[in-house]
Design a protein around this nucleic acid. Structure first.
Lengths: 151, 151
DNA sequence: TATTGTTATACTCTATAACTATA
DNA sequence: TATAGTTATAGAGTATAACAATA
């Protein structure tokens, strides 16, 4: 007997949360790149810088965990931020294995500048959202992120 | 004068919508892969199959637009679905350039099976969400997706 | 033995550009 | 000239595995 997709599949792709999250994520990623411009920071580099500014002297291993990536993958990101003179790898007395990451004045300024541009562009895109809608969305996304360590 | 990140940066990474979307998207992507298992469909292959099942005889160009990717990138996806005998590329009378994609019985069954597993696993992950929270989240994500063509 | 940072390597996802066969 | 599908190629982003230095 031949199956009829329309009647046997009341739920389709548009009802899959993961799919909607992915597509919406791509939209805001494009907004981010548009905000930063051609020579601007990539999203993941911005995220790393943000955490170094927020947590000065964070180690690479800890930062990788915070970002949800492997520490091997963080090397290139920190290299770029160091090349741009936005942070410095500094040795820590007592444990010569670790590289504490310290933001420079230029790094802090660059982060503030980039963050302001992101906030402005995101607000522009979210012009059709009420303030409470934005807050609700952030709250629900953080609730999903509460399952980050699961698998 | 030395800047103090704590006082000068009231808004941090956690307030960036794009960052929260990306992290939440990764969580649900892992849920998806966990649901499908080792030999299961990748998210993008599942999405393509879903649309072929929903829109039989869709062309590759149209499908690529629906998925938000370039048609060159769709080739490998359709190749995989054809290799698995989940769909067939069929010629269309009147225009020998186009390849209409038609789901097979096995493809429809595989989609139903995969979709059921995704629904179950997503529901499991969203056990701490109320029904209205899930609906609200989907609604807000679709509202963001309304800006898909912007840039 | 275990951990930190690093390198080498590979895989996934996507893009751009050029090709072919049709239109 | 333009379009549909394809190929070749490259670039992000991430992972695994192994290494050197250090603990």
């Amino acid at each position: 007997m031949k199956q009829n997709p329309k009647t046997l599949l009341p739920s389709d792709l548009e009802d899959v949360l993961g799919y909607n999250l992915k597509r919406a994520s791509v939209v805001m990623q494009n907004v981010f790149r548009d905000a930063q411009g051609e020579e601007g920071l990539a999203p993941r580099v911005f995220a790393a810088l943000a955490l170094v500014v927020e947590f000065p002297h964070v180690t690479q291993s800890v930062l990788a965990v915070k970002l949800g990536i492997k520490r091997s993958g963080l090397v290139a990101i920190v290299d770029e931020l160091e090349d741009r003179a936005f942070l410095a790898r500094t040795t820590v007395p007592g444990d010569r294995r670790v590289q504490a990451l310290v933001p420079t004045e230029a790094g802090i300024a660059a982060f503030n500048n980039a963050a302001a541009k992101v906030r402005a562009k995101e607000a522009e895109t979210l012009a059709d959202f009420s303030e409470s809608e934005v807050l609700t969305l952030l709250e629900l996304l953080r609730k999903i992120r509460g399952h980050e360590g699961d698998e």
